[in-house]
Design a protein around this nucleic acid. Structure first.
Lengths: 216, 216
DNA sequence: CTCATTTATTAGGCATGCCTAACAACATAG
DNA sequence: CTATGTTGTTAGGCATGCCTAATAAATGAG
């Protein structure tokens, strides 16, 4: 009934993330995200559908309840791993994603719980994303991208949708991390940058980047 | 030149352990240890020899320098993982082996170093086996099995060559763990049990078990 | 010395997951 | 309406690592 491999976990996790980002999830989008060829993904999709982990209709790839449960377990292990790496082993937030991608498949349910306990049951990963609890319950705050704020509006950073180490390093030097308050000073027209104020300093921020920073 | 997979790591690690236990390492012994069929092992042995990780002569399977280096890296990661599990995450010594078997293949050199540093560069795993340093240098104490002690002799436990959780739990209830002093009260004849004294209590201990406990 | 057992290998398969090349199905721009 | 591009699938392969059955070689017991 279960029949799970690390690859299947990887696919389900990706599908979960992509469907959060935007519906529907297409074969090509998934292939790109996993860095695989479309036919490889096509094949696996058929297999996952056969295991009742996803449904594959006209309107794209959707996780079934069972598939969603597994995906959230993997995400929980991923984000707990990241917290372990930053809070206990002293990694910086830009160094943890790749490492966690490997750890998430090597962690038993027991270890998952021990990590959570040892860290005081953290609610989010270092990038601000919520950690599903052990029953798969996921608390999502109502947020909007920084790029949608108008001049003079402000918000508190909740999360940063970015995995690229270089970009995360850059954001850290600006102090753009969860729980930090940002104020938009100015929005340049024609899709130009935002001028933001973070703890006393002013920076110009591209729209692209700003859209990945979620504030409340 | 490298070309490494988790399976190859697993084989090299097993060969290293088996050759420490007893020379020479045979295909069948390796197959039994890895819980694989002899032909599967035979095949992999040929592959490992082709990669210059082992030599396969009349007198069994031997690691080359290169193979030994990799094996020690894996063992380092395994034992550091065990320490992480006991010292930081609160696992008991009988719960860590299997978990570490998965972690050892998921840990980057960076994480390896961070674990070591965070734990104060531990010299042994929870079972008393030495942890190779980052250059692969391994300090081995001169030890002998508890089973070789005569009546009235005593020693300090250095390590316990056992992975079975049940047995480790049992030994822990007797207090037979590294750094503990044991005195042999009596040795029953005809391969019978040893009567040992540990921190004030007396226990009868089978020869088989006693041979796995190394003392100095 | 011979028969039997253990030990190692060859032969032939299979599942998993990946690939490229080729084709089909659809949207849309001109 | 046709040409072009995007998207998805089939077809055919390949590498990795495992298996069983059969065979060959070495060891040991009577």
């Amino acid at each position: 009934m279960e029949a799970d491999t690390p690859r299947i976990e990887e696919y389900l996790e990706s599908i979960y993330k992509l469907q959060q980002e935007k519906h529907p999830v297409s074969t090509s989008r998934l292939a790109e995200h996993l860095k695989l060829s479309p036919p490889s993904v096509s094949e696996m999709i058929r297999k996952l559908a056969g295991k009742d982990l996803i449904s594959h209709s006209e309107k794209g790839i959707c996780l079934t309840e069972h598939g969603k449960t597994i995906a959230k377990k993997v995400i929980r292990r991923h984000r707990l791993s990241e917290r372990l790496l930053t809070d206990i082993l002293g990694f910086k937030w830009d160094e943890v994603h790749e490492e966690a991608c490997r750890l998430e498949h090597a962690i038993s349910p027991e270890m998952e719980e021990r990590i959570s306990e040892s860290l005081g049951n953290p609610k989010t990963c270092p990038h601000g994303h919520p950690i599903p609890d052990k029953d798969g319950v996921l608390i999502t705050e109502k947020v909007r991208p920084l790029s949608e704020l108008k001049a003079a509006q402000k918000g508190i950073i909740v999360s940063v949708f970015e995995e690229d180490p270089k970009m995360l390093q850059y954001l850290a030097t600006l102090g753009l991390m969860p729980d930090v308050c940002v104020r938009v000073e100015e929005v340049a027209p024609f899709g130009g940058p935002l001028i933001v104020c973070v703890s006393g300093s002013r920076y110009a921020l591209g729209r692209e980047v700003a859209s990945k920073i979620k504030v409340k």
